[in-house]
Structures are given as C-alpha cells and as structure tokens.
Design a protein around this nucleic acid. Sequence first.
DNA 1: TTATTATTTAGATAGTTGTCTAAATATCTA
DNA 2: TAGATATTTAGACAACTATCTAAATAATAA
Lengths: 93, 93
Amino acid sequence: MTINKTFDALADETRRKILELLKKKDMAVNEIAVNFSITLPSLSHHLSILKNANLVTARRRGQQIIYSLNLSVFEEAAKEIYNLFKIKNNKKV
Amino acid sequence: MTINKTFDALADETRRKILELLKKKDMAVNEIAVNFSITLPSLSHHLSILKNANLVTARRRGQQIIYSLNLSVFEEAAKEIYNLFKIKNNKKV
DNA sequence: TTATTATTTAGATAGTTGTCTAAATATCTA
DNA sequence: TAGATATTTAGACAACTATCTAAATAATAA
C-alpha cells in the first residue's frame, strides 16, 4: 500500500497496459495474454507485482484466475499521486 | 514529454523527494544535496533525469545552477496521471 | 485415474540503473 | 592568471528487474 510500491508498479509500460485493459472489463490471464508478446510466466510476474501493490485483485473461476482492478485502492492511489504533486505554495529564490 | 519518461522519473524515491523539496522553493544543487546522503554526481544524475522528463528546469546564477519545478508541465503530468487511471466504465465479467 | 488446460513458481541470464571515484567544465575571487 | 567553489561528465561496478525455459500446482474432462 505504500506510495513506493504504487510507483514501482506503474513505472512499467506492460503493467500500465494491463491496467488499461482491466479498465474495460475483468479478464483471465490467458485473455490478457493475447494482448502481449511475452510468455505467460512473464505476464504472471507483472500481475503479481500489480497484485502486491493492491492495484488489482484475483479470484478463481474454475481453471481460470480472473483479474480485476481494485477500484477503491486504485482511485485512492490516483488521488494520492495527484495530491503528491499538486503545487501548493511555490516561492522563487 | 512521454508518459513513459514521466513515470520512469517518478519511480525513484530520491527523485520524488527532490520534487517535494522544490515545491517549497527553487534550490541550487548544493542546497538540495544537504537533504541526501548520496554524492553530488549521483544527485546530478537524478536531476538530469528529472530535467529530461521536463519536470524541472535549470538556470545558472553565478557559480550555481538553480533548479525549479517546471510548473506547467508538472501540473499537466499530474493531471495526465490522474486521468490515465480514472475509471470510466468498468464491467464485471 | 490419466490427460488436458490454466496459471504460477523456480532458477538462470541479460539489460538497466543507481551509485561511486576521478576528471572535466564553468564561474568567481584574489 | 591562479586558486577556490559549484556542478557535470566519464567510466566502472553492484544490485535490480524483466525475460526466458522447465517444472510444479490446480481444476476440469475423458
């Protein structure tokens, strides 16, 4: 949940693309995979980083694991990022 | 100016701390340096990444180089980040 | 139970990056 | 001009990370 984990998770283009995909709908790993040209283990690695940063959640549906954006934490993270860098009181030297 | 460069620049804790410092006021490199325990070349490296991502600008004042937040681009980047991850239309599977 | 499908874990490797020391560049002062 | 101060550049190195192949785990189907 730290801001560090959030930024590390967002710093990779593949992971940002995964999040963009999950904005449209929840998806199983193999469904996500068709959008990339990396192997499944590599994709799984990225998913675990996103999961660890609480940006996504995973639930099993039969043989598949369905990934979703973790909406509450995600909105929260976006706001946190915005506020972190919102200028409040800049003084020129 | 790409979103990639922005995220890469923001993914490092030292660089985020530099930006926080520059929110308060413009600062010379040696003034920034007292807040960190890294060498000046390392700090200079971070500053060049921030500069390259257009998050800061640099101007010379005598022997010193004064760094400032690049307000316009900075606000823009913050909004871009916020919008990139704002949920518009999420559908459950 | 055996085979098939879906995903993750383990372990190795190559590329990237943050850090350092040493040297170079730029400005100011005596 | 010589010396001091401020910062960057160059080059090396260690740590990190994204990727891969091979193997393991989990659920379903035959």
